[in-house]
Simulated assay, not measured.
Amino acid sequence: MMISVLIPTYRRSQDLARCLVALQQQARPADEVLVVVRDSDTETWQLLAELDPHALPIRTVKVGVPGVVAAMNAGVDVAKGEIIAITDDDAAPHADWLERIEAHYLADEKVGGVGGRDRMHYGTQLVEGQSHVVGRLQWFGRAIGNHHLGVGNAREVDILKGVNSSYRRSAIAHIRFDERMRGTGAQVHHELMLCLTLKRAGWKLIYDPQIVVDHYLGQRFDEDRRNQFNAIAFSNMTYNETLSLLEHLSPIRRTAFAIWAVLVGTRDAWGLVQLLRFLPSQRKLAWQKWLASMHGRWQAWLTWSNGDRSSEVWAQHL
């Protein structure tokens, strides 16, 4: 199968250089490497101009719109591969990354997506831990990630993580990453909408802990600065998750999700219980996080209730 590797990048040229070196070392080489670069990113354009043109089959794709969704769609639109493998510029895939990904598609024609573990590095520290529960969506709408902690055998999941994911081209031929996702950079949870759309259409999503990338958590240049609270980023993250779930849950599950989201929530999308839990220690910050979460939930509800059902349109084409 022909494999296209897709890398969206922005102002992280050193990270990108490490990623490209890792791709040069693949046991199963990529047939093409698509590097999607913002038109204003002079740092990255300079790096690409200095690369050995024979080291990798690189094609550059220029975008003028900020955000990973626009970059992903621009790359998918021109990709030639039967498999589109996706990683971040701050990740370094292991040498058997593409080989293991391809094996799953060859083994089962119903597999629409394959992903794996991202070993997360905070500076010089590697995040340790193990989890057998990875990429699951509970019946009431709580999404469980843990992709960086997965152990065990390859298995079907509900959600793949963008930094270590791939899709069969025929499965996403009529689907785009949802351009309603909010944010000007990472647009957290952008992959959730796509994965749930594929599951509804009957495709299998496989998570294999043996498919590994090292994820070095590079600097972000948008409102979302990872571990630094920003009300806009917090609200955007909650909006993206909520809109995805409202579109794909059944009416009963959607009602349960709404009740749970408002009353309980999670560390990343606060409900009332989370507010009361952290109010004694975080005080004013706790109120800010709760308000940002509620704002994101409400904005997503307005978008969904206004009748924009892009996922239903996609499903009709599958």
Rank of each mutant, 00 (worst) to 15 (best):
N73Y: 09
E156G: 15
Q288M: 11
N153F: 07
W260V: 07
V33M: 06
L243D: 09
S40C: 05
C195L: 06
G183P: 02
T266M: 06
L51P: 05
D224L: 08
M120G: 05
N240A: 13
E99F: 00
R117P: 00
L23M: 14
L194G: 02
V264T: 14
Q25S: 14
R169W: 00
S293R: 05
E191N: 15
W270H: 12
I232T: 15
A55N: 11
A201D: 04
I86G: 06
W270P: 10
A173G: 11
Q25K: 15
I58A: 08
V33L: 00
R176P: 03
Y207Q: 01
Q316T: 15
V163A: 11
V151A: 10
R180C: 12
V68A: 07
I232R: 13
A231R: 14
T42N: 02
L285M: 14
R176D: 10
S311V: 13
S250Y: 06
V33I: 13
L217K: 02
V133F: 00
H54F: 08
R119L: 04
D118G: 07
L302N: 08
R136L: 14
L23N: 08
H94T: 01
W301T: 13
L285P: 07
E43T: 12
A92D: 03
Q282H: 14
L6S: 09
H104N: 01
L20F: 08
R226T: 12
L272S: 10
D89S: 00
V36Q: 07
Q274S: 07
D77E: 15
M193K: 11
P57M: 09
H189D: 14
R168P: 02
W45N: 03
A154Y: 04
A256N: 14
V313W: 12
T255F: 02
R38M: 03
D52G: 06
R253A: 15
D108W: 04
Q25H: 15
Q299C: 13
D308V: 11
I232K: 12
E43M: 08
Q228N: 10
D39W: 05
G152P: 11
A171V: 00
A231Y: 11
I86K: 02
V65D: 12
S40T: 14
G113Y: 09
Q125G: 01
P29W: 02
I172E: 12
I101N: 06
W97C: 04
D52S: 09
P66S: 08
D308H: 15
V111S: 01
V76F: 10
G307W: 07
I232C: 03
L160K: 02
K161L: 13
H94D: 11
K62W: 00
W45A: 06
A292Y: 07
I252E: 15
G141L: 03
